[in-house]
Amino acid sequence: MAIVEIKNLKSGYIVNKEYVPVFNDFNLEIEENKITAILGPNGCGKTTLLKIIAGLHFYEEGDVILDNKSVEKIPIQKRDLSYIAQDIALFPHWSVFENIAYPLRSHKVKAAEIFKKVEDIAKEFEIEHLLSRNPSELSLGQQQKVILARAIIRDAKLYLFDEPFSNIDEENKQVLLGFLKKEKEKRNLSIIFVTHKLQDIFAIADNLVVMNKGQNLQSGKLDEVLKHPNSFETLEILKEYHEE
């Protein structure tokens, strides 16, 4: 079953008073309870796609259906999803505990439930000893763990990750990808994961979407796409990122 369906999408940007198209008749289905990686060169529309689903960017035509409902009928703040970009940061004046608790507090969850959920997720992420600390005392990798914990704690229907680990070292990234995969299996999460690293995809993805110039070149199970690219263009993209 699809958690996200995109049909005949048309969208673009206004740049210097001129309309620059990004998507023109773009179609995609994202399977529920799977990690779907989106791979493609810079400027192909990966981030724009996530922003459209999250309601952070407009589209002129087409349908975006989230969990069987058109997003036009769901106000942005009521979309049951979590969007994590690479430049997301922690609130510096709040403790790790308060940062992780923030999504629950903004959804008016009761305090007793917040305490339990934060402590449980801190145990899962092995950051219990950091709960009372300030973000500035943590390393970059630890901060990203906290960001991930903050994202996951909400139990949203859909998670949108836009290259969230691009600015940390490889060792910490692999640890975080491991946590993400473990959480996905434990909580049956639906995740769309934008990346330009094939190694990240190998680590966690179930499905793969290859994009270029606003087009969905190929999408399907990871193995299927890697073993049977449907066009020369898809193959070139896979080769390019494999060599990186």
């Binding site: 430049d87 940061a89 922690l90 510096p92 000893h129 950091l130 009372s132 600390r133 300030n134 973000p135 500035s136 005392e137 943590l138 390393s139 970059l140 990798g141 630890q142 901060q143």
Partner: peptide
């Protein structure tokens, strides 16, 4: 926006090992 961060992981070695250390740690952090 980027957070200030430490160059190394915050580990149990960085946490207070005595109540006197805890006193000053709480006042500081």
């Amino acid at each position: 926006m980027k957070n200030k961060h430490s160059s190394s992981d915050f580990t149990i070695n960085n946490l207070p090992h005595s109540r006197i250390q805890a006193f000053f740690d709480i006042l500081k952090t």
